[in-house]
Write a protein that binds this DNA or RNA. Structure first.
Length: 271
DNA sequence: CAGGTC
DNA sequence: ACTGG
């Protein structure tokens, strides 16, 4: 059973809306209609957005020797990793760098309202996510008006790269090969690449090392020193240690730990 | 200070 | 270095 609201509000998906008993998710040019069980309809092809094929029992077994993860998979039962539209995911996490989740949501909504096609579904008005060509052809001055600041240059450059085919066939690449491809885009470093690799490319060994996870890995596992790595080499060393410790479902483990860290923080979560 | 990058 | 909770 999928925990739909828990998954949508876990910092991996930003463009969703709760209307009545349904959730509507903007996923590229698609609108997904979701109820408590998962995706039930869509304006385009239905995607396996909640990765229903993942072997959750097998994941539980791989966490058996880890008391913390064993507790968290019960506390947050039904929390899933999503399988998102690649381009929207790239832009989402470029926007996320050195920002906060309420602001990321606002920035992405503004991008849809200014540059995405308007449509209606179930008599509700929606704006789709713009295509790579549209954002690539937009002056950075106008992208900046969405509140993204200096990230506007990165958004335009990454959009042009994807429009020109940089990421074609990325689903057939290995983790490292896909990472190298993604990191060619401006605004995409190791952490943002790991988000894309996990949430769009299905690489469950990808572990986005953000401030929260870095802190948790230090405090609960004694891995790293709790500070953000500032070179790719530092990031890679830490990533290897973290992945070795969390196992083949490290990406899932990361999402449970991220949820725990944020829920335990002093500040009430705003979204 | 915020799901980092150049 | 942008930006706002």
């Amino acid at each position: 059973m999928i925990d739909v609201p828990g998954t949508l509000s876990s910092g991996q998906v930003f463009l969703w809306r709760h209307v009545g008993v349904f959730w509507y998710v903007i996923d590229g040019q698609n609108i997904l209609k979701v109820d408590d069980t998962g995706v039930i309809d869509a304006t385009r092809t239905i995607t396996d957005f909640f990765r229903c094929g993942d072997d959750i029992d097998r994941m539980h077994e791989s966490f058996a020797q880890d008391p913390l993860l064993t507790e968290l998979i019960h506390r947050y039962e039904g929390l899933r990793i999503t399988n998102q539209n690649l381009f929207q995911c790239v832009i989402s996490f470029i926007v996320s760098a050195n920002s906060n989740i309420p602001r990321i949501r606002r920035n992405l909504q503004d991008i849809c309202h200014r540059f995405g096609d308007k449509t209606a579904y179930d008599d509700i008005a929606f704006c789709l996510f713009p295509t790579p060509a549209v954002l690539a052809g937009t002056d950075t001055h106008h992208i900046r008006e969405c509140g993204v600041g200096y990230r506007a240059q990165h958004i335009q450059g990454a959009s042009a790269a994807i429009r020109d085919g940089l990421c074609d066939g990325i689903d057939r690449m290995s983790y490292k090969e896909a990472q190298g491809t993604l990191c060619e885009m401006p605004g995409v470093g190791r952490k943002v690449a790991d988000c894309i690799l996990l949430f769009s490319c299905g690489h469950l060994e990808a572990v986005p090392l953000d401030r929260w996870i870095i802190r948790v890995m230090h405090e609960h596992y004694g891995i790293g020193d709790g500070t953000t790595p500032h070179t790719t080499r530092q990031y890679d060393i830490l990533h290897d240690d973290v992945r070795d410790r969390l196992g083949p479902y490290a990406g899932y483990a990361q999402q449970y730990l991220f949820k725990m860290a944020r829920n335990n923080s002093e500040k009430p979560l705003k979204w």
